[in-house]
Design a protein around this nucleic acid. Structure first.
Length: 412
RNA sequence: CGGGGAGUGGCGCAGUGGUAGCGCACCUGGUUUGGGACCAGGGGGUCGCAGGUUCAAGUCCUGUCUCCCCGACCA
């Protein structure tokens, strides 16, 4: 893509009303547009980042046999009443509305109930289990107070996975596998270093659940973590014995305290939803038994914000290689010189045809503003073609001049 | 939901009762060109909305909507 064709521009200033670092950088770089508090549009560059985060998650989930679907955000109250989660005094952040005929609707804040309801149509035997379904879906939560830029919005993109098993044992096998899969995902996303498997106080259905917490000053949570064992506990839930479930002796731990962002979580749901909604299967003896369930979330848009919090330094952002909107930022200086533009254009075409994603800054701007823009946009590989670089025989990459062919090889 | 702050060109801001301004961005011309250039000229705002006070309201009063920060909440 040629930068001169992108409708967004970078900005020098941003409202002092928007304080969070992720919103500052993303707004200034033109990745997102704020519609209202907690509600953001994702523009060209931001959409590309979001897509790449999704793709990493998709690849890892598909690899273990999960099936991608997409459910509706429009929810009928009849699906939610059996679990008592339609009631406003139980769930206070519904966005509710009505059909023209008066039927009450809600915008989904999660999808356990409708997913369970769908499964009821298809699961009737132990032979139909296990099933693993997931989606990337917009969730709506009428937060009393949106904050922290895209980290806590009223509308956000989430990956939610649901697992359906015959019993607790088979569920736990998958559940434990998911701990590793999640860490693998976060590692690929470039957040592995700062992300900890974190024990959290249980849901009503189990003693503990696990969160995946990424260390950040912008976080809303506080964890006690151990870098060597790569485990943590939510500070609120800390107790003397909590680490025994990890098989770790407290004496071996060196606990540090830090603020963190919850980027994912995994829950054992048990039979709460299957019982309420009548999702049962016939076992080998023909007996009807409630399906044993789990749910597994990753905040996709929140991860995008977390990356900015994690990687941006001042006005300079650096996206992880796999997530960056483009792999290479090709910057042409001295755009009035035809040799420069000819070489840059040639390199752009060559990279493009070999399948390398490249953003080509072909704009007629001064070097300083091009570099500042590039810093803000945060593409990890930068190649500069200029009068000077051509005089030295090519383009600049990582501080050295290489021939265009060499650059092509380096980046392939 | 409690406390605090703020709504003025696309963006960031100034303007305490008397002809709406500045910076960025934008347009034209020129000079510049390896870290957000400079000169000259130019376009663009019924000051969140509604009502009121006044000869006169961006400015004062009342109501209302919205945004941000802190706290509570976050299944």
């Amino acid at each position: 893509m040629k930068q001169s064709h992108i409708f967004t521009k970078t900005r020098k200033d941003i409202s002092k009303n928007e304080e969070s670092k992720n919103a500052q950088i993303l707004l200034r770089a033109g990745f997102i547009h704020k519609e209202m508090a907690g509600v953001y549009s994702y523009l060209y560059l931001g959409k590309r980042v979001l897509d790449k985060i999704q793709q990493v998650i998709r690849e890892e989930l598909d690899a273990i046999g999960c099936q991608e679907i997409i459910m509706t955000a429009l929810q009928s109250k009849t699906v939610w009443e059996p679990t008592n989660r339609w009631a406003d005094d139980v769930v206070d952040n519904w966005f509710k509305t009505n059909l023209a005929n008066g039927t009450e609707l809600g915008l989904a804040f999660t999808h356990e109930e409708p997913m369970t309801r769908i499964m009821r149509e298809y699961v009737s035997s132990y032979k139909d289990l296990p099933q693993l379904t997931y989606q990337f879906q917009t969730k709506f939560r009428n937060e009393a107070r949106a904050k922290s830029g895209i980290m806590r919005g009223r509308e956000f993109l989430m990956k939610d996975l649901y697992s359906f098993h015959t019993d607790k044992e088979s569920h736990l096998v998958f559940y434990n596998q998911m701990k590793d899969v999640y860490m693998k995902i976060f590692t690929r996303l470039g957040l592995g270093e700062g992300t900890f498997l974190t024990m959290s106080s249980g849901e009503p259905f189990s003693q503990y659940s696990f969160e995946f917490q990424t260390l950040s000053e912008a976080g809303e949570d506080t964890i006690l973590y151990d870098t060597q064992h790569k485990v943590a506990v939510n500070k609120d839930d800390y107790s003397e014995t909590i680490f025994s479930d990890f098989g770790i002796d407290m004496k071996d731990l060196n606990l540090l305290e830090g603020k963190s962002i919850e980027i994912g979580d995994i829950y054992t749901l048990g039979t709460k939803y299957s019982e309420a909604l009548g999702l049962t299967y016939a076992d080998a003896n023909g007996q009807n038994i409630p399906v044993f369930m789990g749910s597994y979330g990753i905040g996709v848009s929140r991860i995008m914000g977390t990356m900015v919090e994690f990687f941006a330094q001042g006005d300079k952002m650096t996206w992880p290689e796999e997530i960056a909107p483009f792999k290479v930022h090709l910057i042409a200086l001295n755009t009035d010189k035809s040799e420069v533009m000819k070489s840059a254009e040639q390199l752009y075409q060559d990279l493009h045809t070999t399948g390398i994603e490249v953003l080509f800054d072909d704009r007629d701007e001064r070097p300083g503003s091009k570099f500042s823009d590039a810093d803000l946009i945060g593409i990890p590989h930068r190649v500069i073609v200029s009068n000077r670089s051509l005089e030295h025989g090519g383009a600049e990459y990582n501080g050295t001049i290489l021939s265009l062919d060499q650059i092509q090889k380096e980046l392939s």
